[in-house]
Design a binder for these strands. Structure first.
Lengths: 344, 344
DNA sequence: CTATGGAATGACAACGCTGTCAAGCTGGAA
DNA sequence: TTCCAGCTTGACAGCGTTGTCATTCCATAG
């Protein structure tokens, strides 16, 4: 049976079939397929032609087994999390992986969890994951970090609180964005500006809060703790926090929520108190999720290039795995204020 | 070097190490690990103990290569789609895969696309995907179906328009739910009930519309085409469709939108016309996305057990791949009406 | 013309597991 | 007691690549 017949019948040409067709050894085929140097141009062409004719695809299992590399990246995320965020992370990571023929495996986790470390360890050893992408707040779990270090698995953290030496860290100018957002309100005359903090486990929470304080300071507005409430990046906590602010003797005229979901909660709290938005109260969010544009009124918020951040995270992680010089930590990504109708 | 030392140093015990520790052949270890029959209980225990001590994990690459099975399922989805839906699908599929030691690979697609077939073919052949999960509307693309048939790749379609013989089909009682939802409005006195259809490419669109008509018929309400508008399962189309309905000489007192995102659009259109909801207009959605509860007023809608549906889809697909008798098409899943405040 | 060294190519042994098939055991029937 | 069937177990050959190292080729220097 010729290789051509084999291919036609099974749709599974092997490296031997290609070698036969091209009249070279399997090793040469391997070199061409893997873009290795030291192959004569004419040889390369012959091989490539055979590859095309036979529709040859290297068998990933054989490649992994022989090369002792899995070409698999893992993405560990909090399962109940804000999913529009994860969608973007997924999109970005997936596109980076596809470009370089890596596979991406997902591992949702419920936090907090005692079994977390076991679950991730099983995930990594089972699938022979080579590197892990850690979207916030996964980049800040000490147990997880320890595990990865023990397993000698490199990782890329997206928006962690603190960068880890030797690993990939992707940051966004969240503090600057929060600063700009707050300043935006100040410039429009607001002086009593409430703030709803995010989950302290997320690095983002502190940065967004810092930007708020920084803006107040710059404009000579006294910081008042009574205008600040703790939230947890979700709707209910935003609603509760806003309710407290709006029941204050002296009510703020604007509220900065640390993300859109909490801003949505704030909108609801305002509505329950008969406050017209934005006239009686301005509300701003953070993240520009789909929710922001579907709410009434549509939210003024901050857009982060999550997709690009995740893509870069995956790319730098792959570079790290392949021994390419780790760039100095990538410059933080820029955010963008999206002005809609929830602000005067 | 003993296997114990090897394990300690590398964290990578092989089947040989386990065999040595347990005093059996590698084949017996293989049998135990794969739960094959005909292994004496005492032998099994010895092996299991060695497995535990060495923290042995079979190498998936070797297993795939040798067994000519990849143990990989693919999930093909429309990338810009409603993502809360995909989150649930992902959750369900992932949990099923995890239970049976399958891997799940994702392939987002932008529809419509001329390269769709090529992209999916590359996806499948590259990763040696054994079976594919097709959430709506992926289950209804003729090109895709043809491709999968040619490649002899079984698939599981979630909520397709029509079931495909020999494949897994997972359905939900959408028509019944839509019927119940419409009837719910009728019972509350509504007679002029508008309807916003979904994307005709989704099987769900027709079923939801049918349920609406069925409810009208049951209650002797004349069907009026003027109260029905075409939408595409997204916010903007819902807003536009609702705007048309609300600008009619004789306005409906309730609107059934075929999903939540369109219902959100309808809410906006109503607000722009100064209509108080639910007093001047009732609006209902479908899907119970997170959006539904964050809108004002929170939407009355229908919850589908998407997660369970996806899990079952994956399970039945794996059964199919492993030659287990394909059950008669699984009974459709039940939906549930969630009453909130967007209806009188 | 020959020597030389790097570029180009190939032979062959892993990689870690499962499938196949043969062999060893065991207990009950004859 | 012997025999047989069925349960257990093991030896060994792949599976399709890549890594290693040897060999061949070729252009250039001497």
């Amino acid at each position: 049976m010729t290789s051509k017949q084999r291919e036609a019948r099974q749709g599974k040409a092997t490296i031997f079939d290609v070698a036969e067709q091209a009249g070279v050894s399997i090793k040469t085929v391997s070199r061409v397929v893997n873009n290795e140097p030291n192959v004569r141009e004419s040889t390369r062409d012959k091989v490539l032609e055979a590859v095309g004719r036979l529709r040859y695809r290297p068998n990933v299992a054989a490649r992994s087994l022989s090369g002792r590399r899995s070409w698999v990246l893992g993405l560990v995320y909090g399962s109940p999390d804000e999913f529009s965020y994860m969608k973007d992370v997924l999109d970005g990571a997936l596109s980076a992986c596809e470009e370089r023929d890596y596979s991406l495996l997902l591992r949702p986790l419920t936090l907090p969890s005692a079994e977390l470390v076991d679950q991730v360890e099983r995930f990594i050893t089972q699938a022979r994951v080579e590197g892990v992408i850690l979207p916030a707040p996964m980049g800040d779990l000490p147990d997880l970090q320890r595990l990865l270090r023990r397993l000698e698995i490199p990782f890329a953290a997206i928006a962690p609180k603190v960068a880890t030496a030797g690993q990939v860290t992707i940051l966004c100018e969240e503090q600057a964005a929060s600063f700009a957002l707050t300043e935006f309100l100040i410039e429009r005359g607001h002086r009593a500006i409430g703030f709803i903090k995010g989950d302290p486990d997320h690095g983002a929470a502190a940065k967004r809060f810092a930007g708020y304080r920084q803006a107040l300071a710059k404009h000579g507005i006294r910081y008042q703790g009574r205008l600040v409430r703790q939230g947890y990046f979700n709707f209910d906590s935003g609603k509760a926090a806003a309710a407290e602010l709006l029941d204050l003797p002296q009510t703020p005229t604007a509220i900065v929520a640390s993300n859109d979901d909490m801003a949505a909660g704030a909108l609801l709290a305002a509505r329950q108190r008969g406050l017209a938005i934005p006239h009686a109260l301005s509300v701003v969010g953070f993240d520009d999720t789909p929710l922001a544009s579907r709410l009434w009124p549509p939210l003024t918020t901050v857009r982060q290039p999550i997709r690009e951040m995740a893509k870069t995270a995956a790319e730098l992680l792959m570079d790290l795995l392949n021994g390419k010089a780790t760039q100095p930590p990538a410059a933080p990504f820029a955010c963008e204020i999206v002005v809609r109708e929830s602000t005067t």
